[in-house]
Simulated scan of single mutants.
Amino acid sequence: MTGTLVLDSEALSKLSRRHRDMTVWLDVARTLDLLVVTGAATLVEARDPKVPQAAFDHAVSLTKVRPVTEEIARAASRLLAAEGLHGHEYAVDAMLAATAHLERGDVTVVTSDPDDLRRLCHPRIAVESI
């Protein structure tokens, strides 16, 4: 099976705090041999000063961090325009959606903003609440 689990900032934050919901998602990803991905901008949004740096770094090490390239930025901009959303509020979500669109196989985004991500993601991408 090929597929990808994409983590938004809350999912990554919960992973760094070893929250049970995220450890279950991580176990499922390992069982199904899914790639676990996040976007580079998501690291900035997810950083909680209450979480020790080592715990955050460990959580990040469990993912493949995708860069925010010009291609991603332009795709995110188009997604925002298509939905009539402003980048000031939805920029990181749009970049994550654009990142998810480039992944192959079955793609699931785990997010605390399922409504926003469903608007921004193609229908082939599953969006699950955390």
Results as ranks from 00 to 15, higher is better:
residue 92 V to S: 05
residue 58 H to I: 14
residue 53 Q to C: 00
residue 91 A to Y: 07
residue 39 G to R: 10
residue 82 A to F: 07
residue 10 E to F: 00
residue 13 S to F: 10
residue 29 A to G: 01
residue 38 T to I: 01
residue 96 L to F: 11
residue 62 L to C: 10
residue 13 S to L: 15
residue 22 M to D: 03
residue 52 P to A: 07
residue 44 V to R: 12
residue 36 V to E: 02
residue 70 E to C: 03
residue 83 E to S: 14
residue 70 E to D: 11
residue 117 L to E: 13
residue 23 T to F: 00
residue 70 E to H: 04
residue 103 E to Q: 15
residue 37 V to G: 00
residue 123 P to R: 08
residue 39 G to T: 10
residue 63 T to D: 04
residue 11 A to N: 05
residue 29 A to I: 02
residue 25 W to L: 05
residue 35 L to R: 15
residue 13 S to C: 14
residue 85 L to E: 04
residue 86 H to Y: 07
residue 56 F to K: 06
residue 49 P to C: 09
residue 31 T to R: 13
residue 126 A to T: 08
residue 116 D to C: 13
residue 110 V to M: 15
residue 121 C to A: 14
residue 37 V to H: 03
residue 111 T to M: 08
residue 93 D to Q: 12
residue 27 D to Y: 04
residue 49 P to L: 13
residue 68 V to M: 09
residue 57 D to Q: 12
residue 126 A to W: 06
residue 119 R to N: 04
residue 42 T to E: 06
residue 101 H to N: 06
residue 116 D to I: 14
residue 93 D to M: 11
residue 68 V to F: 03
residue 6 V to H: 06
residue 6 V to N: 04
residue 18 R to F: 06
residue 78 R to M: 04
residue 18 R to V: 02
residue 103 E to Y: 10
residue 20 R to W: 07
residue 45 E to L: 05
residue 109 V to P: 11
residue 37 V to L: 07
residue 119 R to Y: 04
residue 56 F to P: 01
residue 124 R to E: 13
residue 97 A to T: 04
residue 112 S to R: 13
residue 29 A to R: 01
residue 4 T to I: 08
residue 97 A to E: 05
residue 109 V to F: 10
